[in-house]
Design a protein around this nucleic acid. Sequence first.
DNA 1: GGAGCTATGTATAAAAT
DNA 2: TATTTTATACATAGCTC
Lengths: 212, 212
Amino acid sequence: MTRQKIEIKKIDNISARQVTFSKRRRGLFKKAHELSTLCDAEIALMVFSNTGKLFDYSSSSMQQVIQRHNLHSQELGLSEHPSIELQLELSNQTMLSKELAEKTRELRQLKGEELQEMTIKDLQKLEKLLVGGITRVSQAKEDRVLKDISSLKRKEVQLMEENWRLKQAQHLTPENGHSSECITIVCSSLADIPQDYDTSDTSLKLGLPFPD
Amino acid sequence: MTRQKIEIKKIDNISARQVTFSKRRRGLFKKAHELSTLCDAEIALMVFSNTGKLFDYSSSSMQQVIQRHNLHSQELGLSEHPSIELQLELSNQTMLSKELAEKTRELRQLKGEELQEMTIKDLQKLEKLLVGGITRVSQAKEDRVLKDISSLKRKEVQLMEENWRLKQAQHLTPENGHSSECITIVCSSLADIPQDYDTSDTSLKLGLPFPD
DNA sequence: GGAGCTATGTATAAAAT
DNA sequence: TATTTTATACATAGCTC
């Protein structure tokens, strides 16, 4: 329940931000559509999530609205000066390069590589960021591992039941003893779930010799 | 008062339509702005009234968002005959954008934010990277702190020597007792190097009341 | 990561100004 | 026609599943 009015500033909590994004985005698109219908307006709406995903809406066609917009904003779309587009691209590229340089630096710092001109305070912030990251990554790994283990255990139970049924069947037609033995061996090896999964590679164990 | 829920279809009454347009348009723009702020999204919104008037909003720059949108929808042909230079810049930009997206993703993963489609092996690699980073960052911080401390200690020794010389000088001309006392107090406070530098801000202690 | 719930905040239809 | 008011419809924060 919306127990309090929220302040309009970036939501820190990642999952809360994601939930709010998808809810409010839907609301926004609905309102845009309603406005275009009620008031016979031509509307284009583009939304990029902070993960870079694109969502867009247009009451007619996106290109059409963009071109109409270009007409309004100082005839930029008419290429009176053929170099205007080029200039735009160039400035855009400059910006991209800057962003790229910034991200690269940030990455190097997170990897502990470019720390000489940081203050003690900066280093503390970096440390906190890394601790947060490692906490989440470890948790994710843990979750994944536990999931894999329980799925393996389920398979083990299935195979043991299958095995038992096959054995029962062989008691009725006892002329073939080889395959029974073979299956028994394979199933017992499956029971060896690694307990030291933190250092071993559990994912390699997932390729079972049996199809689902 | 909104005495009845309205149906979403074109409003026939012209003045009612105009009123609704200006109210809902403002609401829509507000919502767009809130979404961009709350969720760190890049948004462009263009609205043409049925009288042809343009209203637009962009969280950054309209041109930038339109270009980003063009990149996504792969319709790069804004003009009929893009020049060779423009084509070059565009491909260059595409490359830059890809790199940027890649770095952004990597950063997010280091911060533990986008882990859903990583394998256990990937997660382990990430963990190692983070551990390496945190080791180096902590070491750098430690080094910095120790350097600050030893520099402070050197200063302390210098000041104590100076202090001692001043005292000696005063024994030769004993008519002024105040300044001696004052300097003694300051020097004893310098001896209090913080042992809990991990949580206190050592750098603040560097601004000594004495010039070098 | 989505779907549904509910209490509360916000937007707005209609009327007044 | 724009703004303000007010009663009501709608959106959504926080929560559960």
